[in-house]
Simulated assay, not measured.
Amino acid sequence: MIRLRLYTTLGCHLCGQLEALLATLAAEAYHLEEVEISEDDALVERFGMRIPVLADEAGEELDRGFEAPRLADWLRERGWLDEGAWQALQRQLGGAAEPGSVKGATRRGGRRYLG
């Protein structure tokens, strides 16, 4: 079983996005320990501007894991990526590789416009 730690804080919507992506992309069962950083000044200083931060058992960290390509790469490096789920998610997102890109959005003059 994969053991992961998620540094988070109450109301972190990006943490929720990371958790949903992890549930979709992990190739095997995992245990996710959530660490509330607001209760520890040292954790706030270390992670406050970086959450969500996902860490594996070796302590290797992933910032911005709510961006699907970053999480997929991080999981792939460890042999934990469900490649089929990743391909399906990419199709669902319209092959969007750019973080924050939206299916049906177009760019004109440096601005993004929806469908």
Results as ranks from 00 to 15, higher is better:
residue 72 A to I: 07
residue 46 R to M: 12
residue 98 E to P: 00
residue 109 G to S: 11
residue 77 E to H: 12
residue 52 P to V: 09
residue 61 E to T: 13
residue 92 Q to Y: 06
residue 80 W to P: 02
residue 67 E to I: 07
residue 6 L to S: 07
residue 87 Q to G: 04
residue 72 A to N: 09
residue 42 A to G: 02
residue 91 R to D: 05
residue 92 Q to C: 04
residue 74 W to D: 06
residue 7 Y to V: 11
residue 90 Q to P: 03
residue 20 A to K: 14
residue 73 D to M: 05
residue 28 E to A: 13
residue 25 L to V: 01
residue 67 E to L: 12
residue 76 R to T: 03
residue 75 L to M: 02
residue 38 S to A: 14
residue 33 E to D: 14
residue 8 T to M: 03
residue 46 R to P: 04
residue 78 R to T: 10
residue 55 A to H: 13
residue 110 G to V: 12
residue 9 T to C: 04
residue 103 K to I: 08
residue 25 L to C: 01
residue 102 V to I: 15
residue 55 A to M: 13
residue 3 R to Q: 13
residue 66 F to S: 00
residue 31 H to K: 09
residue 96 A to N: 12
residue 71 L to S: 09
residue 3 R to V: 13
residue 75 L to Q: 03
residue 36 E to W: 03
residue 58 A to M: 07
residue 74 W to A: 06
residue 37 I to P: 02
residue 18 L to K: 04
residue 15 C to N: 06
residue 1 M to E: 09
residue 16 G to M: 12
residue 95 G to F: 15
residue 49 M to L: 15
residue 112 R to G: 00
residue 34 E to M: 13
residue 53 V to S: 06
residue 3 R to I: 04
residue 104 G to F: 12
residue 55 A to T: 13
residue 42 A to P: 02
residue 86 W to L: 04
residue 13 H to F: 07
residue 103 K to A: 13
residue 23 A to T: 03
residue 80 W to C: 10
residue 90 Q to H: 11
residue 65 G to C: 05
residue 3 R to G: 05
residue 21 L to A: 04
residue 35 V to P: 06
residue 37 I to T: 05
residue 44 V to C: 05
residue 88 A to M: 03
residue 115 G to Y: 11
residue 115 G to Q: 12
residue 37 I to Q: 08
residue 23 A to R: 15
residue 92 Q to E: 15
residue 64 R to N: 09
residue 19 E to K: 15
residue 86 W to E: 09
residue 97 A to I: 10
residue 31 H to M: 08
residue 99 P to S: 10
residue 81 L to S: 02
residue 53 V to K: 11
residue 113 Y to V: 02
residue 15 C to P: 00
residue 69 P to T: 10
residue 48 G to D: 05
residue 27 A to H: 03
residue 15 C to I: 03
residue 115 G to R: 14
residue 74 W to I: 07
residue 7 Y to E: 09
residue 91 R to M: 05
residue 13 H to S: 11
residue 54 L to R: 09
residue 30 Y to S: 03
residue 98 E to Q: 14
residue 52 P to T: 06
residue 70 R to C: 01
residue 6 L to W: 09
residue 74 W to L: 10
residue 86 W to Q: 06
residue 52 P to Q: 04
residue 31 H to N: 07
residue 79 G to I: 08
residue 94 G to M: 01
residue 102 V to E: 11
residue 41 D to T: 14
residue 17 Q to I: 11
residue 110 G to N: 07
residue 76 R to M: 03
residue 41 D to Q: 15
residue 28 E to G: 11
residue 85 A to W: 09
residue 51 I to Y: 04
residue 52 P to R: 12
residue 95 G to S: 13
residue 32 L to H: 10
residue 66 F to I: 01
residue 89 L to F: 08
residue 49 M to W: 05
residue 77 E to D: 14
residue 18 L to H: 09
residue 71 L to G: 03
residue 71 L to I: 01
residue 56 D to S: 07
residue 68 A to Y: 02
residue 63 D to L: 15
residue 9 T to D: 01
residue 75 L to V: 00
residue 41 D to R: 15
residue 109 G to R: 11
residue 70 R to T: 02
residue 91 R to N: 01
residue 4 L to I: 12
residue 4 L to P: 05
